[in-house]
């Protein structure tokens, strides 16, 4: 999604009131942004705490600021600067974390972001997890309040078209309950289940926002008499599963069964690609398909 992100920045945010700060990242992705934004593109170096503090200073003077880094260096390293400097002031800073979940695969655990959504949700930051490249145009630059944009890899089947952006979108119809997938996991589920008939599979929903659980009525109807599955490349605590189930309980909406697949960390103590880690957590295409077909 880096390329789509860069294109969205150039399309909508190369304006005099917008700054772009990067923590020395963006090779082969942000060169055009750097060239276009000139002095408003600042490589703040390998100093993320300062970068977020500077962003808060810029934003306090009514500038809009995009802060970019690898996800864990964006939300975890400067946590206190996000909390005190950005959030306490409700400042229009968009934190962009590239590589949500296990996306940095082989680079190892320090480069994975498994609890980013929960961490940012806990601060009241607006969390956006685009599922598809096209979503970036709709999501980049939501500056009304502190925002965290979690970039991953668009995993939808080749040749398919993503529905127009909405926080909740049904991307694959099905008649056996519903599956809610956080961000790019929707594309993984789409791949996994497209070969099954509608009678055999749940409807697959791409969920890209936590804040407003304006869950569509259609989703409620699908789970009213059927199973609910939630998959997310994120720890269980504070992720989509906990947010969704709490919302459903508040509304008094039940389901016949509930399956939750989420990031387990490093259960084998071994490391590998994003797909290796997804498989360890039952989040790869094969595991997801089996999760559905094995259900009685």
């Amino acid at each position: 999604m880096r390329k789509a992100f860069a294109a969205a920045v150039l399309e909508n945010h190369n304006t005099e009131d917008c700054f772009f700060l990067t923590g020395d990242l963006g090779f082969m992705a942000l060169e055009e942004v750097r060239a276009a934004m000139g002095g408003r593109f600042v490589n703040a170096g390998v100093a993320e705490q300062n970068m977020v503090g500077v962003a808060a200073g810029l934003a306090r003077e009514r500038l809009r600021v995009i802060v970019y880094s690898i996800a864990p260096f964006c939300y975890a390293r400067p946590f206190e600067q996000i909390r005190n400097d950005v959030c306490l002031g409700g400042l229009p800073v968009c934190l962009v974390g590239n590589g949500g979940g296990y996306a940095y695969g082989h680079m190892g655990p320090t480069h994975h972001a498994l609890e980013d959504c929960a961490t940012m949700n806990a601060l009241g930051v607006q969390v956006l997890a685009p599922a598809f490249d096209e979503d970036l145009l709709a999501l980049v630059g939501r500056f009304s309040r502190p925002t965290y944009l979690r970039l991953g890899l668009d995993a939808r089947p080749a040749g398919t078209q993503a529905p127009v952006y909405n926080p909740w979108r049904e991307v694959l119809p099905g008649k056996r309950g519903a599956l809610a997938a956080l961000g790019p996991m929707a594309g993984v589920a789409w791949q996994a289940l497209q070969g099954l008939s509608q009678e055999e599979r749940p409807a697959v929903w791409a969920v890209c926002e936590f804040d407003e659980f304006s869950i569509p009525e259609a989703f409620h109807r699908q789970i009213a008499n059927g199973p609910l599955h939630v998959i997310e490349e994120h720890v269980a605590q504070g992720g989509l599963g906990t947010h969704l189930t709490m919302d459903l309980v508040k509304r008094g909406i039940g389901c016949s069964s509930f399956t939750h697949r989420f990031a387990l960390g490093y259960p084998s103590g071994r490391f590998g690609s994003q797909n290796f880690h997804r498989a360890q957590c039952g989040l790869d295409t094969q595991s997801i398909r089996q999760m559905i077909t094995d259900q009685p």
């Binding site: 600042v42 300062n50 503090g53 500077v54 808060a56 200073g57 810029l58 934003a59 600067q81 400097d85």
Partner: peptide, 9 residues
């Protein structure tokens, strides 16, 4: 850092 941001702005 905050001051640097203000000065840059």
């Amino acid at each position: 850092s905050l001051a640097a941001g203000l000065a840059l702005a």
